[in-house]
Design a protein around this nucleic acid. Structure first.
Length: 936
RNA sequence: GCCCAGGUGGUGGAACUGGUAGACACGCAGGACUUAAAAUCCUGUUCCCGUCAAAGGAGUGCGGGUUCGAUUCCCGCCCUGGGUACCA
């Protein structure tokens, strides 16, 4: 029979499901190996061709590891809470659970078609109560914990309470809020219950704090940065401003140093580690207090403030300070502003509120700021320094307050130039005519007692001086901020907390899961409360209301790999035994776009769970591979605008669009063929295009093209379904690998898929005679056949172990081409070929495996063939001969000759004379088995 | 802006540790088989100049550098993609 991929694939997928071929056991005499994929968010667009890229790679690896004798855990699930389902719910009224359920069914069908060796008995869904019960449970453990810096780990809050009871707050070294009180044991005991709870909240690893959010008053909701475009909501185009709001936060900063140190112990791509290091942003510097010329009152806390404190990494430049800047949202701004400057300050704050943090940092061209009218005093030279506000200073980083040193910092330089503030040179070799010079070389000038010193000496001297004055000290600062953990959304895990007298308390453990209540609409209430406020009668008790915000998208994904170890467990997030067996993830494959989100939060929760003694490894993912993103190829039509700039019904072809005013509109790539629009389909595609008219070129409408992220909203999603229908899953699997290096991003195209399909047919044909009858020979293989086989045994093994799947597909092609040329149909060769190819193309291999006379289903647990180097031994090599680095010819030499012997023969070689142009040979470089270079 | 990655024929890519640039495919051109098409097979295919054949020259985003030798290492620039804390 010819290669009937449809029948074969259906048959084996059914076989694997019926026999639970890939079910992993939680005990085994084999070594364990845990291969994890980043689980997908089940979007309404279905699985697109980008998803399987990583899954195919991990599946090849899993199948390979089974062949190598490992007990492999390879699970799959769904990260099923998220914004898109909620937005869809808002538009249609459809409950997100229903949408999600449907999407998951689609995903499952699509995944099954590709022939993955997942253990589906362990499937997880973050939105199912049986799962999020444990997400809530972990939240509770965090709430019940504090970070003890002395022990350098999280501990139960009860330990802290005991310390307070015996010694008060003395000697406590915790990661906590900066407004904790000092008290004795007696004072602690004298506190009211509420006072104690309020104090403890400042230490808990999940806690409430004021955070800035994108607030859209018109929609009455908080928006993701994603939903905000240029200061307006993407939906509706309403203005968005920055607003402060009480939010749940996670004290991830407690783990900053451990998150940083842990990077050295894991096998992750260096760029990704680098991104995390930069995100954590450890900087060694100093805190410096600048006394205020006159004291002010903090209007929020009522405290008297006598100084502004800054963090700086260049304390040595303190004599170059010519102004001070605080963030526009800094709590002292109003207090520092003098009446005559109030108008300017208020205008500046209003401007800032319109910009997101990202805009503020990205925009270095517009320099804006305002003088408050107040002054501080430089503690080292007594200079009076103006206090400004400027939006390049962020309240969330450091102290929200920066000392301006224009000679050493470019942003400060531009700011000083713009507002005519002094620029003081402080280092002798500094050149500050046109820009700042941040040099650390040279000797200090204009710098009081450090004049003449070098950088290191000066830094130490300044810190020592500040410490002796009580005006500063050395300090390590992290750029990373605590993670905001509340979302004003419906489709997420409810936070297992209720409020009584304004203080948060956990619900009881036996009350878990706190199930997401039903609501009439998925929008915020008219008064701007989150959607959960709509749930009627949903309160903890008559005098205690539930927390109304839900958890962020990353909550459920921060521990899911443990759930796979013991997915059905009802009494723990995973049993101690299961965790002790599987321990951690050996190989994790996913996109680098998660570098500073998911991958950091997961490490954080893992470290916390380790501190609690609940898991055994400090790091969750031993080895990580980033698969590249398969990008979409978007098509555009160009809508012509009229004189007033309004869109018309007329669309102009790409080549002629320069003659009109146009707006590009994404068009579904499925109604475009080779960039030519199918006009009939276009008119049917959306109602508002039914009467569209077109300006064509050469009778065709040519669409514009752009490469961007594959996404439903860009109408550029390509499903794997069509490809499977046409070529089968084995072809899809091999083609996605053949497309290029796993780690590289690339736009999707199907240009080369025919070649892969032809390869599989060619492979099938090796086992069949001209009449398509199965026919293999039991004769001894020839030396040439064995050479082809052992070349591929070695190559595929090496390639899989360095995740170079594209090159092994090429090698398979070469091997099959060679065996076809040799007309090889020897069982000894072909049986091993089937095993080697099976991780890549499992269906066809299962079929051939059985045709070869093996028991069905045993291929997955067969043994990878052993490589024998004897078959590859060569005794001669055709050396490329280059003259001054330019290859001229090839000459054969025995590989047993040493460099000197080759050199002697080269010098005497007659054939080379014509290349030497009569010049003398200066030097001969022989690289054994590689190249010979003659220098003349 | 900042952080990270990438840029090689008409296309996807290969060259793993500084050692023959373009493997393997796609596409294209020509041919075989066929009434025809599909399928299959064979030959050619980086560019320029040129030939019966050859022999030259250029060439891995751009400009420099190190080296006997650079796609690979270093410096500067340009372009593209990802992240930038409420997309996941």
């Amino acid at each position: 029979m010819d290669y009937q991929f449809k029948d074969i694939e259906k048959k084996w997928q059914a076989f694997w499901a019926a026999n639970q071929t890939f079910k992993a056991d939680n005990e085994s005499s084999k070594p364990k190996y845990y291969v994890l994929d980043m689980f997908p968010y089940p979007s309404g667009a279905g699985l697109h061709v980008g998803h399987p890229l990583g899954y195919i790679a991990s599946d090849i690896f899993s199948r390979y590891k089974r062949l190598k004798g490992f007990n492999v855990l390879h699970p799959m699930g769904y990260d099923s809470f998220g914004l898109p389902a909620e937005q869809y719910a808002i538009q249609t009224g459809q409950h997100p659970a229903i949408t999600t359920e449907e999407n998951i069914a689609t995903y499952r069908r699509q995944l099954d078609q590709i022939g993955f060796s997942f253990d589906w008995s362990r499937e997880v869904r973050t939105s199912s109560p049986g799962y999020y019960k444990w997400t809530q449970w972990i939240f509770m453990q965090l709430f019940n914990s504090w970070y003890n810096k002395d022990a350098d780990k999280a501990e139960s809050i009860d330990v802290l309470v005991k310390k307070f009871e015996s010694n008060g707050s003395a000697g406590i070294d915790a990661v906590c809020d900066d407004d904790t009180l000092s008290f004795t044991a007696a004072e602690w005991k004298a506190m009211s219950h509420d006072e104690r709870q309020s104090e403890l909240l400042k230490y808990r690893l999940t806690y409430l704090r004021e955070s800035t959010v994108n607030w859209c008053a018109a929609l009455g909701t908080v928006l993701a940065n994603d939903e905000v475009k240029d200061g307006f909501s993407e939906r509706g185009g309403y203005p968005v401003e920055q607003k402060k709001m009480m939010q749940w936060s996670m004290r991830i900063t407690a783990y900053a140093e451990r998150l940083l140190q842990g990077l050295d112990k894991i096998d992750w791509p260096d760029p990704l580690k680098e991104m995390q290091r930069n995100w954590i942003g450890k900087s060694i510097g100093a805190m410096v207090k600048f006394p205020l010329e006159s004291r002010v009152k903090n209007q929020e806390s009522g405290a008297e403030i006598s100084y502004l404190e800054v963090f700086t990494t260049r304390v040595d430049t303190i004599f170059g300070v010519s102004y001070m800047v605080i963030a526009p949202e800094h709590e002292l701004v109003q207090a520092l502003t003098t009446p005559e400057h109030k108008a300017g300050i208020d205008a500046c704050i209003a401007q800032t509120k319109k910009k997101s943090e990202l805009d503020r940092m990205a925009d270095t061209k517009t320099i804006s700021g305002a003088f408050t009218g107040s002054y501080v005093v430089n503690p080292l030279n007594g200079d009076k320094v103006q206090v400004w506000i400027a939006d390049y200073v962020l309240a969330g980083y450091g102290t929200g307050c920066v000392m301006g040193v224009p000679s050493g910092d470019q942003r400060d330089y531009l700011f000083a130039k713009h507002f005519n503030l002094p620029i003081i040179p402080i280092i002798d070799i500094q050149n500050i005519e046109t820009e700042a010079d941040p040099t650390k070389e040279g000797k200090y000038i204009n710098s009081g007692f450090i004049n003449g010193m070098g950088y290191k000496e000066a830094t130490a001297a300044v810190i020592a001086k500040l410490e002796s004055m009580g005006m500063g000290s050395g300090k390590i600062n992290y750029r990373m901020r605590d993670a905001i953990f509340g979302r004003q959304r419906y489709w997420g895990e409810p936070v297992p907390v209720y409020f009584k007298d304004g203080l948060p308390y956990l619900i009881k453990e036996e009350e878990l899961p706190l199930v997401l209540p039903e609501v009439d609409k998925y929008l915020p209430t008219e008064s701007g409360e989150p959607p959960l406020a709509r749930a009627e009668g949903w309160r903890y008790s008559a005098d205690a209301a539930y927390e109304l915000s839900t958890m962020p998208g990353w909550a459920g994904s921060s521990w899911y790999w443990y759930r796979y170890m013991d997915a059905q467990n009802d009494t723990a997030f995973a049993s101690e035994k299961a965790i002790a067996y599987w321990k951690d993830v050996d190989l994790y494959i996913g996109g680098s776009e998660h570098a500073t989100g998911h991958l950091l939060y997961s490490r954080f929760w893992n470290k916390f769970l380790k501190d609690m003694g609940l898991v055994v490894e400090e790091e969750p993912f031993k080895k990580l591979i980033n698969q590249g993103m398969i990008q979409g190829r978007s098509n555009f039509v160009y809508r012509v605008s009229d004189a007033e700039g309004r869109g018309t019904n007329m669309f102009v072809s790409h080549g002629l669009k320069a003659q009109y005013h146009t707006t590009p509109i994404h068009v579904d790539v499925n109604i475009v063929e080779n960039d030519i629009l199918d006009i009939a389909k276009f008119k049917k595609w959306r109602d508002d295009f039914a009467d569209a008219e077109f300006i064509l070129e050469n009778g065709k409408y040519i669409c514009g093209v752009e490469v961007e992220k594959m996404s439903k909203s860009k109408y550029n999603v390509v499903n794997p379904d069509d490809i499977i229908e046409r070529y089968g899953a084995d072809t899809l699997r091999m083609y996605e690998m053949f497309l290029g290096p796993l780690e590289q991003s690339k736009p999707w195209n199907t240009n080369g898929i025919e070649g892969v399909f032809k390869f599989l047919r060619k492979f099938w044909r090796l086992f069949h005679n001209d009449a398509w009858e199965f026919s293999v020979s039991d004769n001894e293989p020839s030396r040439a056949e064995l050479k082809s086989l052992h070349k591929i045994i070695l190559k595929v093994q090496e390639d899989i172990e360095r995740f170079s799947f594209n090159t092994s597909v090429s090698s398979f092609m070469i091997a099959v081409n060679e065996l076809t040329d040799l007309k090889c149909n020897k069982r000894q060769i072909l049986q091993d070929m089937v095993i080697i190819l099976s991780p890549y193309a499992p269906h066809i291999c299962e079929e051939l495996w059985v045709l070869l006379g093996n028991a069905p289903g045993t291929l997955s647990y067969a043994t990878y063939p052993k490589f024998n180097p004897e078959y590859l031994v060569e005794n001669e090599f055709s050396y490329p001969i280059s003259i001054n680095g330019k290859t001229k010819t090839n000459i054969n030499f025995s590989l047993s000759l040493d460099d000197k012997e080759i050199e002697d023969q080269i010098v005497a070689h007659a054939e080379l004379q014509k290349y030497l142009e009569g010049k003398a040979i200066k030097k001969v470089i022989v690289v054994k088995g590689r190249i010979i270079n003659i220098v003349i």
